[in-house]
Computed example of a mutant assay.
Amino acid sequence: MGEAATGSTPARAGTESTCDSDSPEGKQIQQNLGQLQESFTPDPPSADPEVEVAETPAAGDGTVKVPADKITIDGQTLDKIILSHSTGLDSGQLDVKVHSSKIDDRWYVTNLDFDIG
């Protein structure tokens, strides 16, 4: 994961020390990821999930927004996985996009858009 650019602050990659620390930032990251883990895990879960992302053109600012139906985890699309864990949402009620930014020649998830309703 990484942090999106904001104003004059460039995007930055998350580091192991940032994500696995006892700092307030590290604790917040761990809490956020923990809350998403179940919703983003296919059933049945695998020990080594295979994730595939459809090729998506980058915007002029070097970011990419990939719809959840263009991301597969162990052959299941992310939108279907999220819906399988929901309590009453239909497919037309969910719009999820994963934002990625290129930082030091590697792509990082830097934001998530959830539109539910």
Rank of each mutant, 00 (worst) to 15 (best):
64 V>M: 13
72 T>G: 10
116 I>T: 11
74 D>A: 07
47 A>L: 12
100 S>M: 15
97 K>I: 01
55 E>P: 03
48 D>P: 00
52 E>L: 08
71 I>C: 11
73 I>D: 12
74 D>Y: 06
108 Y>I: 01
64 V>R: 15
89 L>N: 04
78 L>C: 07
93 Q>W: 06
52 E>C: 00
83 L>N: 10
107 W>V: 01
45 P>A: 13
39 S>M: 12
87 T>N: 15
116 I>A: 03
76 Q>L: 09
47 A>P: 00
58 A>H: 08
103 I>Q: 05
100 S>K: 12
109 V>P: 03
95 D>G: 07
53 V>N: 02
64 V>K: 14
56 T>V: 06
64 V>T: 13
42 P>E: 07
110 T>S: 11
96 V>L: 05
100 S>Y: 10
88 G>R: 04
85 H>C: 04
95 D>A: 13
78 L>W: 10
91 S>F: 04
42 P>T: 07
80 K>V: 09
88 G>S: 05
69 D>Q: 13
89 L>F: 12
74 D>P: 06
60 G>I: 04
68 A>F: 08
113 D>Q: 10
67 P>A: 15
50 E>A: 14
68 A>K: 09
116 I>K: 00
111 N>F: 01
112 L>W: 03
111 N>P: 00
93 Q>M: 13
90 D>F: 12
92 G>E: 12
101 S>Q: 13
101 S>H: 11
45 P>L: 07
62 G>V: 08
41 T>H: 00
104 D>M: 04
48 D>N: 14
40 F>N: 02
113 D>A: 10
56 T>E: 12
100 S>T: 14
98 V>I: 15
46 S>T: 15
114 F>G: 01
115 D>S: 11
67 P>Q: 11
108 Y>V: 03
43 D>F: 08
115 D>H: 07
64 V>A: 13
51 V>Y: 04
41 T>G: 01
108 Y>E: 12
41 T>V: 02
100 S>D: 02
89 L>H: 10
68 A>R: 10
69 D>R: 12
63 T>C: 05
40 F>T: 05
91 S>P: 05
87 T>D: 15
61 D>M: 10
107 W>I: 00
56 T>P: 03
96 V>D: 09
63 T>W: 08
88 G>W: 00
87 T>R: 13
74 D>L: 09
46 S>R: 14
47 A>Q: 14
63 T>Q: 08
50 E>S: 14
67 P>V: 08
89 L>T: 05
39 S>G: 08
49 P>V: 02
112 L>S: 05
113 D>M: 04
85 H>G: 08
47 A>N: 11
91 S>K: 14
90 D>R: 13
95 D>W: 04
98 V>Y: 00
68 A>Q: 09
95 D>N: 15
73 I>F: 06
109 V>W: 00
49 P>I: 06
51 V>T: 12
104 D>P: 01
48 D>C: 03
48 D>M: 11
69 D>P: 00
102 K>H: 03
92 G>K: 11
89 L>R: 11
94 L>W: 08
82 I>A: 10
90 D>H: 09
46 S>N: 10
